[in-house]
Protein backbone atom coordinates (compact mmCIF):
# COMPACT_ATOMS: atom_id res chain seq x y z
CA UNK A 1 0.00 0.00 0.00
CA UNK A 2 1.45 3.34 -0.99
CA UNK A 3 -0.04 5.22 1.94
CA UNK A 4 2.87 6.12 4.20
CA UNK A 5 2.74 4.75 7.76
CA UNK A 6 2.01 7.51 10.30
CA UNK A 7 4.92 6.37 12.43
CA UNK A 8 7.40 3.53 12.18
CA UNK A 9 8.53 1.39 15.12
CA UNK A 10 12.15 1.94 14.21
CA UNK A 11 13.91 4.35 11.88
CA UNK A 12 16.73 2.27 10.50
CA UNK A 13 19.17 4.27 8.46
CA UNK A 14 22.73 5.30 7.76
CA UNK A 15 24.91 8.02 9.18
CA UNK A 16 27.60 9.08 6.73
CA UNK A 17 30.66 10.90 7.97
CA UNK A 18 31.84 13.39 5.36
CA UNK A 19 34.89 14.13 7.52
CA UNK A 20 36.13 10.57 7.32
CA UNK A 21 35.12 9.43 3.84
CA UNK A 22 38.19 9.14 1.63
CA UNK A 23 36.26 8.63 -1.59
CA UNK A 24 37.57 5.14 -2.33
CA UNK A 25 34.25 3.87 -3.77
CA UNK A 26 34.61 0.55 -1.90
CA UNK A 27 31.01 0.96 -0.65
CA UNK A 28 29.84 1.39 -4.25
CA UNK A 29 31.53 -1.83 -5.34
CA UNK A 30 30.39 -3.88 -2.35
CA UNK A 31 26.83 -2.59 -2.75
CA UNK A 32 26.79 -3.53 -6.41
CA UNK A 33 28.20 -6.94 -5.59
CA UNK A 34 25.83 -7.82 -2.76
CA UNK A 35 22.73 -6.50 -4.46
CA UNK A 36 23.51 -8.19 -7.75
CA UNK A 37 23.91 -11.59 -6.15
CA UNK A 38 21.05 -11.45 -3.67
CA UNK A 39 17.65 -9.74 -3.19
CA UNK A 40 15.69 -8.94 -6.37
CA UNK A 41 16.73 -8.41 -9.96
CA UNK A 42 20.50 -8.08 -10.45
CA UNK A 43 21.98 -4.63 -10.98
CA UNK A 44 22.70 -4.90 -14.67
CA UNK A 45 25.32 -3.17 -16.81
CA UNK A 46 24.94 -2.20 -20.42
CA UNK A 47 27.91 -2.13 -22.80
CA UNK A 48 30.10 -2.84 -19.78
CA UNK A 49 33.28 -3.38 -21.80
CA UNK A 50 32.40 -1.08 -24.68
CA UNK A 51 32.87 2.61 -25.34
CA UNK A 52 29.74 3.81 -23.54
CA UNK A 53 29.27 1.74 -20.40
CA UNK A 54 26.30 2.41 -18.10
CA UNK A 55 24.77 0.45 -15.28
CA UNK A 56 22.50 0.44 -12.28
CA UNK A 57 23.96 1.48 -8.93
CA UNK A 58 22.21 1.98 -5.60
CA UNK A 59 25.05 3.98 -4.12
CA UNK A 60 27.30 6.49 -5.83
CA UNK A 61 30.14 8.65 -4.49
CA UNK A 62 30.32 12.26 -5.66
CA UNK A 63 33.18 14.63 -4.85
CA UNK A 64 32.69 18.32 -4.16
CA UNK A 65 35.06 21.21 -3.74
CA UNK A 66 34.12 23.75 -1.09
CA UNK A 67 35.85 27.12 -1.23
CA UNK A 68 35.45 29.01 2.08
CA UNK A 69 35.73 32.80 2.21
CA UNK A 70 39.28 32.51 3.50
CA UNK A 71 41.72 29.67 3.43
CA UNK A 72 42.25 26.84 1.02
CA UNK A 73 39.50 24.92 -0.74
CA UNK A 74 38.44 21.61 0.75
CA UNK A 75 37.64 18.43 -1.16
CA UNK A 76 34.70 16.46 0.24
CA UNK A 77 33.74 12.96 -0.88
CA UNK A 78 30.04 12.45 -0.76
CA UNK A 79 28.44 8.98 -0.89
CA UNK A 80 24.76 9.11 -1.75
CA UNK A 81 22.11 6.39 -1.59
CA UNK A 82 18.44 6.19 -0.55
CA UNK A 83 17.81 8.26 2.59
CA UNK A 84 14.72 6.19 3.58
CA UNK A 85 12.73 9.40 4.09
CA UNK A 86 9.94 9.54 6.65
CA UNK A 87 7.82 11.50 4.19
CA UNK A 88 8.95 9.60 1.12
CA UNK A 89 7.48 11.19 -2.03
CA UNK A 90 8.56 8.16 -4.09
CA UNK A 91 6.12 5.92 -2.23
CA UNK A 92 2.89 7.89 -2.59
CA UNK A 93 3.24 8.47 -6.35
CA UNK A 94 3.48 4.73 -7.12
CA UNK A 95 0.35 3.57 -8.98
CA UNK A 96 0.74 -0.15 -8.30
CA UNK A 97 1.71 -0.33 -4.64
CA UNK A 98 5.13 -1.72 -5.57
CA UNK A 99 6.80 1.09 -3.63
CA UNK A 100 6.26 0.97 0.10
CA UNK A 101 7.69 2.04 3.46
CA UNK A 102 7.82 -0.63 6.13
CA UNK A 103 5.97 0.13 9.34
CA UNK A 104 8.28 -2.01 11.48
CA UNK A 105 11.64 -0.43 10.60
CA UNK A 106 10.98 2.40 8.15
CA UNK A 107 12.89 0.85 5.25
CA UNK A 108 11.61 1.98 1.83
CA UNK A 109 11.43 -0.96 -0.56
CA UNK A 110 10.20 -1.88 -4.04
CA UNK A 111 8.20 -5.04 -4.63
CA UNK A 112 9.67 -5.82 -8.03
CA UNK A 113 6.88 -8.25 -8.95
CA UNK A 114 4.40 -5.35 -8.87
CA UNK A 115 6.61 -2.66 -10.45
CA UNK A 116 5.51 -1.65 -13.97
CA UNK A 117 8.63 0.47 -14.50
CA UNK A 118 6.82 3.77 -15.07
CA UNK A 119 9.67 5.72 -13.47
CA UNK A 120 7.43 8.18 -11.62
CA UNK A 121 9.03 7.35 -8.24
CA UNK A 122 12.48 8.21 -9.60
CA UNK A 123 11.08 11.56 -10.75
CA UNK A 124 9.61 12.18 -7.30
CA UNK A 125 12.92 11.55 -5.50
CA UNK A 126 15.04 14.70 -5.10
CA UNK A 127 18.17 12.71 -4.33
CA UNK A 128 18.47 10.48 -7.38
CA UNK A 129 18.28 7.43 -5.15
CA UNK A 130 16.24 5.31 -7.54
CA UNK A 131 17.46 3.95 -10.82
CA UNK A 132 15.49 1.94 -13.36
CA UNK A 133 17.31 -1.22 -14.29
CA UNK A 134 17.59 -1.25 -18.07
CA UNK A 135 17.60 -5.05 -18.28
CA UNK A 136 14.82 -5.92 -15.82
CA UNK A 137 12.67 -2.82 -16.41
CA UNK A 138 11.98 -2.44 -12.69
CA UNK A 139 12.99 0.28 -10.26
CA UNK A 140 16.04 -0.48 -8.11
CA UNK A 141 16.92 1.25 -4.87
CA UNK A 142 18.89 0.76 -1.66
CA UNK A 143 17.20 -1.89 0.51
CA UNK A 144 19.41 -1.06 3.49
CA UNK A 145 20.53 -4.66 2.83
CA UNK A 146 17.30 -5.96 4.31
CA UNK A 147 18.58 -9.44 3.42
CA UNK A 148 21.67 -8.97 5.62
CA UNK A 149 20.57 -7.03 8.67
CA UNK A 150 18.03 -9.68 9.82
CA UNK A 151 19.91 -12.66 8.38
CA UNK A 152 20.72 -15.09 11.18
CA UNK A 153 22.76 -17.24 8.80
CA UNK A 154 25.40 -14.51 8.78
CA UNK A 155 27.85 -13.90 11.62
CA UNK A 156 26.56 -11.07 13.81
CA UNK A 157 29.32 -8.72 12.67
CA UNK A 158 28.03 -8.99 9.10
CA UNK A 159 24.43 -8.10 9.95
CA UNK A 160 24.84 -4.53 8.75
CA UNK A 161 24.45 -3.11 5.23
CA UNK A 162 27.19 -4.21 2.86
CA UNK A 163 28.47 -0.64 2.39
CA UNK A 164 28.87 -0.18 6.15
CA UNK A 165 30.63 -3.52 6.58
CA UNK A 166 33.02 -2.70 3.74
CA UNK A 167 33.96 0.93 4.43
CA UNK A 168 37.69 0.86 5.28
CA UNK A 169 37.57 4.35 6.78
CA UNK A 170 34.67 3.75 9.16
CA UNK A 171 32.77 6.59 7.52
CA UNK A 172 29.44 4.75 7.40
CA UNK A 173 27.33 3.86 10.43
CA UNK A 174 24.10 1.89 10.62
CA UNK A 175 21.47 1.94 13.36
CA UNK A 176 18.07 3.05 14.62
CA UNK A 177 17.80 6.81 14.26
CA UNK A 178 14.40 6.74 15.97
CA UNK A 179 16.00 5.66 19.26
CA UNK A 180 17.73 8.68 20.76
CA UNK A 181 19.99 6.46 22.86
CA UNK A 182 21.35 4.51 19.92
CA UNK A 183 24.99 4.99 18.92
CA UNK A 184 24.03 6.56 15.61
CA UNK A 185 21.65 9.05 17.26
CA UNK A 186 24.37 10.06 19.74
CA UNK A 187 26.80 10.47 16.87
CA UNK A 188 24.34 12.69 15.01
CA UNK A 189 23.76 14.80 18.13
CA UNK A 190 27.48 15.13 18.88
CA UNK A 191 28.57 16.01 15.36
CA UNK A 192 25.62 18.13 14.20
CA UNK A 193 24.26 15.63 11.68
CA UNK A 194 22.32 17.24 8.87
CA UNK A 195 19.55 16.53 6.33
CA UNK A 196 20.05 16.86 2.58
CA UNK A 197 17.68 19.33 0.86
CA UNK A 198 15.47 19.88 3.94
CA UNK A 199 13.42 22.36 1.87
CA UNK A 200 11.98 19.41 -0.07
CA UNK A 201 10.13 18.33 3.08
CA UNK A 202 11.06 14.67 2.74
CA UNK A 203 12.36 14.27 6.32
CA UNK A 204 15.28 11.96 5.46
CA UNK A 205 16.22 9.33 8.04
CA UNK A 206 19.84 9.10 6.85
CA UNK A 207 22.04 11.86 8.26
CA UNK A 208 25.30 13.35 7.05
CA UNK A 209 28.02 14.44 9.47
CA UNK A 210 29.65 17.64 8.22
CA UNK A 211 33.45 17.82 7.85
CA UNK A 212 35.17 19.05 11.01
CA UNK A 213 36.79 22.50 10.79
CA UNK A 214 40.37 22.35 9.60
CA UNK A 215 43.11 22.82 12.21
CA UNK A 216 45.21 25.97 12.09
CA UNK A 217 48.93 25.21 12.19
CA UNK A 218 50.21 26.26 15.63
CA UNK A 219 53.34 28.40 16.13
CA UNK A 220 55.95 25.72 16.78
CA UNK A 221 58.82 27.88 18.11
CA UNK A 222 58.07 30.35 20.92
CA UNK A 223 61.14 32.39 19.97
CA UNK A 224 60.28 32.61 16.29
CA UNK A 225 58.48 35.98 16.52
CA UNK A 226 61.64 37.53 18.05
CA UNK A 227 63.96 36.39 15.27
CA UNK A 228 65.34 38.91 12.85
CA UNK A 229 63.05 39.16 9.84
CA UNK A 230 64.54 37.75 6.67
CA UNK A 231 65.67 40.54 4.38
CA UNK A 232 63.01 41.18 1.78
CA UNK A 233 65.22 43.27 -0.49
CA UNK A 234 67.29 41.27 -2.92
CA UNK A 235 70.95 42.13 -3.26
CA UNK A 236 73.53 41.52 -5.96
CA UNK A 237 72.50 40.67 -9.50
CA UNK A 238 68.88 39.81 -8.65
CA UNK A 239 68.58 43.08 -6.73
CA UNK A 240 69.89 45.02 -9.73
CA UNK A 241 67.56 43.13 -12.08
CA UNK A 242 64.59 43.85 -9.83
CA UNK A 243 65.38 47.56 -9.76
CA UNK A 244 66.10 47.68 -13.48
CA UNK A 245 62.82 45.99 -14.36
CA UNK A 246 60.98 48.24 -11.91
CA UNK A 247 62.38 51.29 -13.64
CA UNK A 248 61.21 50.30 -17.11
Amino acid sequence: MTTLPATTDKKLGLVIDLDTCVGCHACVVSCKGWNTENYGAPLSDQDAYGSDPTGTFLNRVHSYEVQPETGPAQLIHFPKSCLHCEDAPCVTVCPTGASYKRQEDGIVLVNEDACIGCGLCAWACPYGAREMDAAAGVMKKCTLCVDRIYNENLPEVDRVPSCVRTCPAGARHFGDLGDENSDVSKLVAARGGMDLMPEQGTKPVNKYLPPRPKDVEPEMDVLAPYLQPVAKDQKGFLGWLDKALEAI
Binding site: Y64, V66, F78, L196
Partner: peptide, 18 residues
Amino acid sequence: SATGLGERGDVRAFEPPH
Protein backbone atom coordinates in the same frame (compact mmCIF):
# COMPACT_ATOMS: atom_id res chain seq x y z
CA SER B 1 21.38 22.68 0.24
CA ALA B 2 21.70 19.49 -1.81
CA THR B 3 25.05 18.65 -0.24
CA GLY B 4 24.44 20.39 3.09
CA LEU B 5 27.81 22.10 2.59
CA GLY B 6 26.51 25.50 1.45
CA GLU B 7 27.20 27.27 4.74
CA ARG B 8 30.88 26.41 4.55
CA GLY B 9 31.55 28.20 1.28
CA ASP B 10 31.02 27.94 -2.45
CA VAL B 11 30.31 24.34 -3.42
CA ARG B 12 31.40 23.06 -6.81
CA ALA B 13 30.89 19.58 -8.26
CA PHE B 14 34.49 18.47 -8.47
CA GLU B 15 34.20 14.93 -9.75
CA PRO B 16 31.12 12.94 -10.76
CA PRO B 17 30.66 9.42 -9.35
CA HIS B 18 31.33 7.85 -12.74
